[in-house]
């Protein structure tokens, strides 16, 4: 035992080292979240980290307009619940557009042979990884023409166009792993090509659709650049733009005009979907069991 003790001192085992690194990393990642969490439940949340003596849900109530703000406070919390709704509208619309289009395009790219397919695939990937900012000028002009200014659906369409290329690739990958036998078997049993697609291929591609839904929802939910150029009215801001605007409108007045409590509550809610969605789709994300039946073990 004595020997073991000495050994522990002189040769710190890898186990210990592992924990040290892990704790350092957690500290690095979690500090802002912990800060957020503590301030959210503080009745007089400020720019300084302070553990509340009496935790309260008041900030959430202010956020949703159930409790009136105290006199003399800044005006921005009035819009916060609208920002949440706006973000949700953008995210859901983006998700629907991306899931529907990437499923169709992915299936076509996986199953059909046509001229120029490899060039199309390559350009999809290249365009997909281009930063949106690079396309900003023509995009902006186009959006004016199409009436996308101050239009949440317009924002979703633009965000979806940016997310689509990579998601099409992901969907194609899923379809590639669904054996053709499944479709052919469905045809033989009496399905038309279209009904085989909806009865067999799409359900078998379910995990892929979930993954694409996950990514595209978050793409809409978290997007900042597109609303920044398209949305002018404060009531139509999504959360990303809203939170930023609070700081942009009140430079140098930190602590006075910024209502930290409700803002932290908003931020906390804003962070939730990634956790919820991850929880819902984790089995598809963690070990994406592609729809292949392993035969013969």
């Amino acid at each position: 035992m004595y020997k073991g003790f000495l050994k522990n001192i002189t040769e710190p085992s890898l186990e210990v080292l592992r924990y040290v690194i892990l704790i350092a990393m957690l500290f690095y990642i979690l500090t802002p979240l912990v800060w957020l969490f503590i301030t959210t439940f503080h009745p007089r949340g400020g720019p300084y980290l302070e553990i509340p003596e009496k935790p309260t849900l008041e900030n959430f109530l202010i956020l949703f307009g159930i409790v009136k703000m105290r006199v003399g406070a800044a005006a921005h919390p009035v819009y916060m619940h609208k920002w949440l709704l706006n973000s949700f509208i953008i995210a859901i619309t983006t998700m629907i557009i991306v899931v529907v289009l990437s499923a169709m395009a992915g299936y076509a790219l996986s199953r059909l042979k046509f001229r120029g397919k490899s060039i199309l695939m390559a350009s999809l990937l290249i365009i997909g990884f281009m930063p949106t900012i690079a396309k900003l000028l023509p995009l902006y002009k186009l959006c004016i023409m199409l009436g996308f200014i101050n239009n949440l659906i317009g924002v979703a369409i633009v965000v979806a166009s940016g997310a689509l290329p990579v998601q099409i690739w992901i969907m194609k990958g899923f379809f590639d792993h669904i054996p053709r036998d499944l479709e052919e078997q469905a045809w033989i049993f009496g399905c038309s090509k279209l009904s085989a697609l909806f009865r067999v291929v799409m359900p078998a591609a379910g995990p892929g659709l979930m993954v694409v839904a996950f990514f595209s929802f978050l793409a809409g939910w978290g997007n900042f650049t597109v609303p920044l150029i398209l949305i002018r009215t404060e009531t139509l801001f999504p959360v990303s733009l809203g939170i930023a605007s609070v700081f942009l409108h009140h430079p140098g007045e930190i602590g006075l005009a910024v209502e930290y409590g409700p803002l932290c509550a908003l931020s906390l809610i804003y962070a939730l979907p990634s956790i919820i969605l991850y929880y819902l789709t984790r089995r598809y994300l963690m070990h994406i069991k592609l729809a292949r039946i392993e035969v013969g073990v």
Partner: peptide, 20 residues
């Protein structure tokens, strides 16, 4: 087309529908 031929088939892979 296959669906009007009134044939039934078992594939080598068995082609069982994984989601059912």
């Amino acid at each position: 087309p296959p669906r009007y031929r009134k044939v039934s088939m078992v594939f080598q892979s068995y082609a069982l529908f994984p989601h059912m």
